[in-house]
Amino acid sequence: MTTSPPPEVSFTPLLDALARGERDALHTLFPLVYEELRAVARRQRRGWRGDLTLETTALVHEAYLKLVDQARVSAASRAHFLAVAAKAMRQILCNYAMHKRRLKRGGGIEHVPLDTDADVPEGPDLSDEHTAMLTALDDALRTLETVDRRQAEIVECRFFGGMSIDDTAEALATSPATVKRHWTLARTWLYREMKLRILDADA
């Protein structure tokens, strides 16, 4: 595997702004992290030299870990960075799932060139069941965002970012107890929504 160069973008000023509560910083920071995450995934892909044994989602996750590991962010803003990266993870994975569904619906006729429309390099498929679940989760999260935006962010951090309760609390400027409580509710609420969506889609 080739060693990836460290990210060229400096996230620190934007992270500091985010830490100060400037939500606008997120709009600038997010595309940067998102692009960087895709770039890392692409580099990894080339590093594998055609080895297709790893699933796409595993690849993205590898990229996420690498990015988190390499991005030179201060300890103070680490949690904020993680939260943004988690959001990017959600976007990439959900786009991938939707792309896959489109391909399936189009019977594979529609050709999507690698690295442009599709967000991530191809690997062995995500199972249909998981594709459906991921799409349903994304839909349900959109609904949740309109009802309780904070809960949706907690899900991004906990689920897509694998962040601890404490890290999530720090990134979202709230208490661990609140994160725990909302996470418990949001997870159950989302699951109920997803089940409805999947049932609807099947019907």
């Binding site: 699933e55 989602t57 595993a58 993205v60 996750h61 993870m89 994975l93 995500l126 199972s127 998981h130 679940m133 991921l134 989760l137 906990r158 689920f159 897509f160 694998g162 962040m163 601890s164 309760i165 996470w183 418990t184 997870r187 159950t188 989302l190 699951y191 109920r192 089940k195």
Partner: peptide, 23 residues
């Protein structure tokens, strides 16, 4: 009523997506 299945499905989905299930 949905709580237990929700926890299980989220963990299972996280595992299948190679996401570390939140501790």
């Amino acid at each position: 009523a949905a709580h237990t299945s929700a926890a299980e499905h989220f963990d299972a989905l996280a595992a299948s997506l190679h996401l570390a299930p939140p501790d």
